[in-house]
Amino acid sequence: MQARQFLIGVDGGGTGTRVVLADAHGAELAQGAAGASGLALGVERAWQAIEAACAQAFASAGLAFDWAHCALGCGLAGVNNRDWLAAFVASAPKLAALDVQSDAYTTLVGAHGGAPGVIVAVGTGSIAAVLDADGACRVAGGYGFPSGDEASGAWLGLRAVVHAQRSLDGRARPDAFSEALLAHIGAADRDALVVWLCEANQTAYAGLAPVVLAHRQHPVASALLAQAGADIAQLVDALDASGALPVALCGGLAANLAESVPPSHRARLRPPLADSAHGALELARRAHALARAATGEAT
Rank of each mutant, 00 (worst) to 15 (best):
V212T: 03
N256E: 14
H265K: 13
A206I: 11
E282N: 14
D240Q: 08
R216Q: 12
S222K: 13
V261Q: 01
I232A: 13
S260L: 00
G251I: 11
V211D: 06
H265W: 14
L245P: 03
P263A: 11
L273R: 08
A221I: 01
L257V: 05
V261Y: 06
A204N: 09
S276P: 11
A214T: 00
L213P: 06
L249P: 05
A204T: 11
L213G: 05
E282D: 14
D275L: 06
G229A: 01
L281R: 13
Q227M: 08
A228F: 04
R266E: 00
E259H: 08
L208E: 06
A209W: 07
A248H: 03
G279T: 12
C198F: 15
A267W: 02
C250S: 13
L213T: 05
S260T: 00
N256Y: 08
G229L: 04
S260K: 00
P272F: 01
A206F: 12
G229F: 02
A244L: 10
P272G: 03
W196Y: 15
L239Q: 09
V247Q: 09
R266W: 05
D240N: 09
N256F: 09
S242D: 09
E199H: 14
E282S: 15
P271C: 04
L281E: 12
V220W: 01
L249W: 03
L224M: 04
L245N: 06
